[in-house]
């Protein structure tokens, strides 16, 4: 596949210098290998210690290793110091050093529970090539979920096709979509291919670019809300993933639902890896019993 950036974000790593991991009882890690980005998170006795977020390359095992190596950078910790490692995401079965693979749905729920607090009931994860809607309980256990990775509408990919058509940098889409006199009706097509045809017609008709962008953000928001309705939206509500950073879509989802999404302190892209590390902790404890 042609290497393309669907969403721009910084590749970076972080670790908490105030934590001394030496001699700690439970060191666990989660690695989330997604189709576009990969993350690794390390927990020390259940506390967030380090993480890294990188682009996924063409090879899943290498991407997992890269994310993990990067999270370990400057910590003095090595892979062998980690007591339990869990792989998740699209490439979860290809994480060579993982003790277990857990689905991204279960990991997102558990990670969201940690990141947003246990009042979170609905998590929407909008990724580069899929969209997940998850309902969970106060322990972060999934109670209802769906994942749409069949159709590009409602994914980062759909947005990218649109950004290319309009020759607008993808990171500008959100802001531009609000620079309209009046909020337009959503484009009628939910299919990306047909929406493209429709958008071209609207541009020819003389619609300003921003209005077309607004119409598409509106259509995308509506589509995602339809997905959410299947699992039932309950407060508190949180949005994670790449499109979670696109205010043009997020604000319109909030408006349609009449619910404001929770804000998190951490990087929401790490929610899956964080959940995997939390699963790791639980599995480690279970294995020691």
């Amino acid at each position: 596949m042609a290497e393309k950036e669907f969403w721009r974000w910084k590749e970076y790593n972080w670790h908490d210098e105030n934590i001394d991991w030496h001699g700690c009882d439970a060191i666990t890690a989660g690695v989330d290998v997604g189709s576009v980005s990969s993350q690794a998170v390390i927990l020390v006795d259940g506390k967030l210690y380090a993480f890294a977020t990188t682009r996924t390359g063409s090879d899943s095992p290498k991407s997992a290793q890269k994310a993990m190596d990067w999270a370990l950078e400057d910590t003095g910790m090595t892979l062998d110091d980690i007591h339990y490692k869990v792989g998740t995401g699209y490439g979860r079965v290809n994480v060579p050093f993982a003790d277990r693979a857990i689905t991204e749905i279960a990991c997102h729920a558990r990670g969201g529970n940690f990141m947003y607090g246990n009042s979170v009931r609905t998590i929407l994860d909008m990724g580069g090539q899929d969209c997940k809607a998850i309902h969970c309980d106060e322990r972060g256990k999934v109670t209802n979920f769906l994942m749409n990775d069949k159709c590009a509408a409602g994914t980062g990919r759909g947005m990218e096709v649109f950004a290319n058509l309009l020759s607008v940098p993808i990171e500008d889409i959100g802001e531009l979509s609000f620079q309209v006199e009046k909020e337009p009706e959503p484009v009628s097509s939910t299919c990306v291919v047909f929406a493209k045809t429709e958008a071209s017609a609207l541009l020819r008709k003389g619609w300003p670019k921003n209005k077309v962008i607004a119409a598409y953000c509106n259509a995308m928001a509506h589509r995602v809300v339809t997905l959410l309705e299947r699992i039932g939206v309950e407060k508190d509500f949180a949005i994670t993933g790449g499109i979670g950073k696109n205010i043009g879509v997020v604000r319109r989802i909030e408006k349609e639902l009449g619910i404001t999404a929770l804000k998190a302190d951490g990087d929401t892209q790490t929610a899956g890896a964080l959940g995997a590390a939390l699963f790791g902790k639980a599995l480690l404890e279970k294995s020691r019993k």
Partner: peptide, 15 residues
């Protein structure tokens, strides 16, 4: 847990 397998596309919802 209610696990929904399938998808929604322009033509409808199939779960």
């Amino acid at each position: 847990m209610k696990a929904n397998y399938g998808y929604m596309d322009g033509s409808g919802e199939y779960y």
